[in-house]
Amino acid sequence: MFVNRFSGKLSAMNKLSYLIFVTSLSWGLQAALAAPAGVWPDNKQQQRLYQQVQAGEVVSLEVILAYLRERYYGEIVEIELEDDDGMLVYEIEMIGPQGQRAEFEFAARTGELMSVEGRQLKAMSKQP
């Protein structure tokens, strides 16, 4: 866990490790979404997903992340964009300041928050 259990804050080294992890994750997702269609020649679902992102049929990841950062305390630790029976869904996992975990699901085409699961979500919320 990145949180110092005594102070509840990230240490400088853990912040750097976390930053490297999140940056790598972000670059990996961007590379996957920006890769030419031929990268996945055997996977029609991946090709279709890529084409939908390129066509602007999907709300950008930046918009989704801005929404979360405005409303919740915590750090994003995992991002997935999946085709769930024809519906594109962003699944984003966050870890809150007290070590709690939350998973958010957004409809990728509209940006609508579909569900939130986790414990102690009120402690993560920036809104009263």
Rank of each mutant, 00 (worst) to 15 (best):
31 A>W: 15
39 V>C: 02
30 Q>A: 01
49 L>R: 14
54 Q>M: 05
40 W>S: 04
21 F>H: 05
81 L>V: 08
104 F>D: 05
98 Q>S: 12
52 Q>S: 04
58 V>P: 05
26 S>H: 12
83 D>V: 02
60 S>Y: 06
17 S>W: 05
106 F>C: 05
49 L>G: 03
16 L>C: 01
14 N>P: 00
82 E>N: 05
95 I>P: 03
30 Q>D: 04
19 L>P: 05
34 A>C: 10
65 L>T: 04
74 G>T: 11
88 L>N: 03
95 I>D: 05
83 D>T: 08
20 I>V: 14
88 L>R: 06
18 Y>L: 15
88 L>V: 03
103 E>K: 06
93 E>A: 13
102 A>K: 06
35 A>V: 04
43 N>R: 13
67 Y>M: 07
36 P>L: 03
109 R>M: 00
69 R>Y: 08
99 G>D: 07
76 I>Y: 04
59 V>I: 10
53 V>P: 07
49 L>C: 05
59 V>R: 13
22 V>R: 14
70 E>W: 01
17 S>L: 13
23 T>W: 11
111 G>F: 12
70 E>C: 11
106 F>W: 03
25 L>D: 08
53 V>F: 06
104 F>L: 12
57 E>N: 15
93 E>M: 14
14 N>H: 12
33 L>Q: 09
81 L>D: 00
90 Y>V: 05
17 S>K: 13
40 W>M: 04
85 D>C: 00
87 M>R: 07
103 E>L: 01
55 A>G: 04
78 E>L: 04
70 E>R: 14
35 A>E: 03
34 A>Q: 14
20 I>K: 13
20 I>H: 11
74 G>I: 01
12 A>M: 10
34 A>E: 09
70 E>L: 09
30 Q>V: 01
22 V>A: 15
49 L>H: 08
113 L>Q: 10
100 Q>C: 06
48 R>W: 00
31 A>F: 15
28 G>H: 13
68 L>E: 07
34 A>M: 13
67 Y>F: 15
50 Y>D: 00
40 W>P: 02
38 G>E: 01
84 D>K: 12
84 D>T: 09
46 Q>Y: 02
68 L>C: 12
74 G>F: 09
80 E>W: 02
58 V>H: 01
33 L>N: 12
42 D>W: 12
27 W>A: 01
91 E>D: 14
76 I>H: 01
111 G>Q: 08
50 Y>F: 11
114 M>S: 09
117 E>L: 06
113 L>Y: 10
115 S>R: 14
52 Q>R: 10
54 Q>K: 12
40 W>L: 00
77 V>G: 07
56 G>L: 07
77 V>T: 08
51 Q>W: 02
73 Y>P: 11
29 L>W: 02
83 D>N: 13
15 K>V: 04
66 A>L: 08
43 N>I: 04
99 G>A: 09
112 E>P: 02
70 E>F: 02
37 A>P: 05
107 A>C: 03
103 E>W: 00
31 A>I: 12
117 E>P: 01
87 M>G: 00
87 M>A: 10
109 R>G: 00
46 Q>I: 03
74 G>L: 02
106 F>S: 04
87 M>S: 08
47 Q>K: 15
68 L>F: 08
81 L>P: 01
105 E>I: 06
45 Q>S: 11
95 I>Q: 14
99 G>S: 13
27 W>Q: 04
115 S>W: 02
39 V>L: 11
24 S>G: 14
50 Y>H: 14
82 E>Y: 01
68 L>M: 15
